[in-house]
């Protein structure tokens, strides 16, 4: 299980043309193994650029990315090898499906790894099981599945590589609430059973608050906030000024505070909100 260290990472797109744009600048982060990280930030904050550095799809303009202490961009072999350790699921991953059957598509990653047929088979079944894709679908064309099923097949295609770090870019975008919950449950299940690091890029603050142990907030290519959900949601005003939503309970707490209700502590779950309101009520009754 790998630990990721990011040192002074900067990436500039189209350097030296009128389109030059610094996407991320001087990012320093350490992500220990097994951590469940929520990556937040609005569109264009650099989070997509950032995650593509973690498995060497993009090479840094300056700075380094270390996986277990080894520079992943050291040479072409390390750039290749890191892809087996850090699995990246892109936004709308269903658009990358191409094989004739679901089985073959999930097997694409392991096959590129030159594994034996037996091991490939094992991994495909395991990955399909993790994301709840029924084996009855194995011989169907991935293109005729429903949107949610396609998404799960695509995620299975990455999980089949058994990455120690699983990064998902907005895995629930465009799905209905039931589909969202299911996919997030599958991911949490995968993490629990394998002890992998999971980095979840999300717009949905409620999901982030509920699932992540640590939240990293990107703003204009910099890390604006980094801490436990408790620490991050203790400053809802800062999140709002960055242009992000806060979880529903935080928003309610913020509105109540503005109206003079003295609520204490960091509030981002319904339970915390309830307790804080009750405490405030008791205090005012005295």
């Amino acid at each position: 299980m790998p630990e990721l260290r990011i040192e002074a990472l900067t990436h500039v797109y189209s350097a030296g043309t009128p389109f030059q744009k610094t996407a991320i600048e001087n990012i320093d982060l350490t992500i220990p193994q097994g951590q469940m990280v929520g990556l937040l930030g609005h569109t264009g904050s650099g989070k997509s650029t950032f995650i593509q550095h973690l498995n060497a799809l993009l090479q840094p303009s300056s700075g380094r990315v270390l996986c277990d202490g080894k520079d992943i961009n050291a040479d072409k072999y390390s750039r290749r090898d890191v892809k087996w350790q850090v699995g990246l699921v892109f936004q709308y991953p269903e658009y990358q499906l191409f094989e004739e059957t679901v089985y073959k598509d999930i097997a694409f990653g392991p096959k590129n790894h030159k594994l034996s047929d037996k091991e490939i088979d094992e991994r495909v079944r395991e990955a399909a099981h993790f994301v709840g894709v029924d084996e009855a679908l194995f011989e169907r064309s991935p293109l005729e599945l429903s949107g949610g099923q396609k998404r799960r097949v695509a995620i299975a295609g990455v999980i089949a590589m058994r990455p120690g770090v699983l990064i998902l870019d907005e895995p629930t975008a465009g799905l209905d609430p039931a589909g969202c919950r299911q996919i997030l449950d599958n991911i949490m299940d995968y993490r629990e059973k394998t002890g992998s690091t999971v980095i979840l890029v999300s717009h949905n603050m409620d999901d982030a608050a509920r699932l992540a142990e640590r939240l990293i907030v990107f703003d204009h290519g910099h890390v604006a906030m980094d801490g436990t959900p408790e620490q991050v949601f203790a400053e809802p005003e800062k999140l709002v000024s960055i242009g992000l939503n806060v979880p529903q309970p935080s928003a309610i707490a913020m509105a109540l505070r503005q109206r003079g209700v003295p609520l204490e502590g960091s509030i981002y779950t319904h339970g915390q909100l309830l307790r804080a309101v009750l405490r405030a009520k008791e205090a005012s009754a005295c």
């Binding site: 799809l57 658009y95 694409f108 990455v158």
Partner: peptide, 13 residues
């Protein structure tokens, strides 16, 4: 570009 990146992430060469 996107599809290429996605397939590269799955080890395509």
């Amino acid at each position: 570009d996107k599809i290429m990146s996605a397939q590269k992430a799955r080890g395509a060469d």
